[in-house]
Design a protein around this nucleic acid. Sequence first.
DNA 1: CCCACTAGTTTATAAAGTCAAGCGGTGTAA
DNA 2: TTACACCGCTTGACTTTATAAACTAGTGGG
Lengths: 126, 126
Amino acid sequence: MNTELSAPGPSAQGVEKGFCPVYRAIGVLQEKWVLHIVRALLDGEKGFNELARAVGGCNSATLTQRLEHLETLKIIGKRTEDTHGKLARSVYTLTPVGRELQSVIDAIDTWGRAHLQEGPPGVAGC
Amino acid sequence: MNTELSAPGPSAQGVEKGFCPVYRAIGVLQEKWVLHIVRALLDGEKGFNELARAVGGCNSATLTQRLEHLETLKIIGKRTEDTHGKLARSVYTLTPVGRELQSVIDAIDTWGRAHLQEGPPGVAGC
DNA sequence: CCCACTAGTTTATAAAGTCAAGCGGTGTAA
DNA sequence: TTACACCGCTTGACTTTATAAACTAGTGGG
């Protein structure tokens, strides 16, 4: 019976009824690998496998899906270039909209450096 | 055979080999509902159901799990207060660490307002 | 007594993400 | 010539995660 209200409550900041850009933005950025992809592309345009490597750990199926989604949102752009002769290479770039996520990544970066020095989740000291 | 490299490439900004706070921070913040929870709590401390309502759409099972995780990360704190007589109410608050995520939310907010005015994902004009 | 509200837990199901393999193509080295 | 590495994906089986819905247990009001 609980938690089924889809309209954010009246207590939140700018949430009136109706469309909320922040809510939507969070919805986009919280998708797995999206922030990693954006961060990788802020470092420069990349090909598919190159991006997979830079992102670190995302598999090709998920990556394809995420890239398509980000492309429809006009956050990234895809270009197919004929580098040498015939081999077509797909190159992914941030659009101006995507590039403005730099501030978000920076904020996360700053926060992470300040408060996440230790590595609780077991695995590697990595 | 692809996409199984866990070590982020050398091309990214501050990624040396070893622990990367940004990578980890993204890992934390990209979990579903986390940014929504933080945003709701930036608006003030809240009880469980109150938080569920503010977050909008998260079910209690997931919320419980997320709150536990965020608590172990010291991003939020849980307090059980005896409001009136015996009824125990759980109150969730941001820790100082959590409060510093304000800048991240602000950056997302700014970006969202600037670029996400339209609502592509069908559903409601909401 | 019945209903609403508190904070959750349980269970079964749906959705999302991952793994491993493979395709068509090129280019490089044996 | 064969073989294997790289490119950019796609496919299908499998695992992990999130969801809805119901339910526990306690308080309080009508």
